[in-house]
Amino acid sequence: MSIDGQLLPEPGRTSAFFTDVTTCIGCKACEVACKEWNLIPATNEINMRWRGRSYDHGQGLGHSSYRHVKFVEQNQPLGGQLTDPEHPFRWVFLSDVCKHCEHAGCMELCPTGAIVRTEFNTVFVQPDVCNGCGYCVVGCPFGVIDRRPDDGRAFKCTFCYDRQVVGEIPACAKACPTDAIRFGPYDVLREQADRRVELLHARGVPEARLETGEGTSVGHTNAFSLLVDRPEPFGLPPNPIVPSMHLKVAWTSALLTAAALGIVLLGAFAVG
């Protein structure tokens, strides 16, 4: 379904975000729209201070910011952009968000089942179930979800579930003036993204690449982005590892240790 070319959410279909750094102007409208829509409490004491990461003075993604725009200022050129021939540099903006992973670390670890997968195949924290155990916080390979100190529960991007169920697109995508955040079904956007990379390559931006999570343990990420560098300068993990990757080894170790210790104890007391 679409209105004026805007793809709309459909239950049963995977909703996705395609964020494109080559069209993001760093206006932060997405950040503000998200906070407004989700009525995120102002965290003035934490936030209203100079941090000086270029124009980024934010806390980063966390319990009280579900969208966060990164300002990547680097001393290297961007494609064929003509800036300063002597000291080439560039300024790239990435609007970061929860990835809504296919294999979501946060969801794997959540002991209460508060984190669920919705009919839009997105990852959603049910605020009425979360008991604030904090385990999801160390389960997210992208450093997204966090526990809100005063509230005690964990929060992250809801993918505007409340909007999607009534057929609206997420607030951040709606606010984005340049369509740098595209919303739509995963398969459609993924295809668009491939074409976009091809186009950019043809237009002399060879460094354009997609960061989709594919080939890593998260499977794919429903929110994926087009970058112009490796993921690290954008503060993204080069090879995200979900917690379940460690379960086999760790549990084996635990069981063997337990068994060994059981035998040792029995032995120690049996010897008398």
């Binding site: 950040e31 503000v32 003035n44 209203m48 201070r49 100079w50 124009y55 003075h57 934010g58």
Partner: peptide, 12 residues
């Protein structure tokens, strides 16, 4: 407005 003020908190 907190949502805007926090985005650029200091004169530079």
């Amino acid at each position: 407005l907190s949502r805007l003020a926090e985005l650029q908190p200091e004169m530079f």
